[in-house]
């Protein structure tokens, strides 16, 4: 599936494995949370990611996090906004500096919110038009609250400048 980063399509180097799939011994792999131990048992140099279900507390990753290069959060439907809190907690509470990937069925109108909560990439749902997502990224230049991206202040008060140069 197409992968979006900063409004642009990028190549996806990761392999996502399911609960019953064989785990490749080499290469970047995303494992489900219940196979985290298997993933961690791979050679230390191999890149590891984990897919976090939306009902999981990010704190379960605390011990493993130094070994993780990617955490995937998911939207079972666009209405289920738990992934926003998970992404933010990963950045803010656990100081996770790796890739936070969004999967599932988010809307393009949620893209800017996701970035401001700390997401790095979005695995676009089937049939999504990357151009609509790119537009959503450029739509607004101002936000009204702090975020984990620590955007610079715009004028006075709470406002932040989002940096997608107005045109």
């Amino acid at each position: 599936m197409p992968l979006l980063e900063n409004g642009r399509l990028v190549e996806d180097r990761w392999t996502t494995v399911g609960s019953d799939d064989t785990l490749p011994t080499t290469g970047p792999v995303i494992v489900p949370l219940d196979r985290l131990e298997d993933g961690l048992a791979r050679p230390a140099g191999e890149k590891l990611g984990v897919a976090l279900p939306s009902d999981a507390d990010v704190a379960v990753l605390r011990a493993a996090l130094p070994r993780l290069a990617l955490v995937a959060v998911t939207f079972p439907t666009f209405r289920d906004g738990r992934a926003f809190s998970q992404a933010r907690a990963l950045r803010e509470h656990l100081d996770f500096a790796g890739e936070v990937r969004v999967t599932g069925r988010p809307l393009p109108d949620q893209y800017e919110f996701l970035l401001r909560c700390g997401a790095s990439t979005v695995q676009l749902p089937d049939g999504a038009d990357p151009a609509v997502w790119a537009q959503a990224h450029e739509r607004f230049t101002t936000a009204y609250q702090p975020s984990v991206r620590d955007e610079r202040a715009e004028g006075f008060g709470l406002r932040r400048f989002l940096g997608q140069a107005a045109n």
Binding site: G81, F84, R88, Q110, C117, Y144
Partner: peptide
């Protein structure tokens, strides 16, 4: 202040 803070809040719109 609460109006501004809650406007298109990235975490709390869903």
């Amino acid at each position: 202040i609460l109006r501004q803070w809650s406007t298109l809040h990235p975490e709390f719109s869903f």
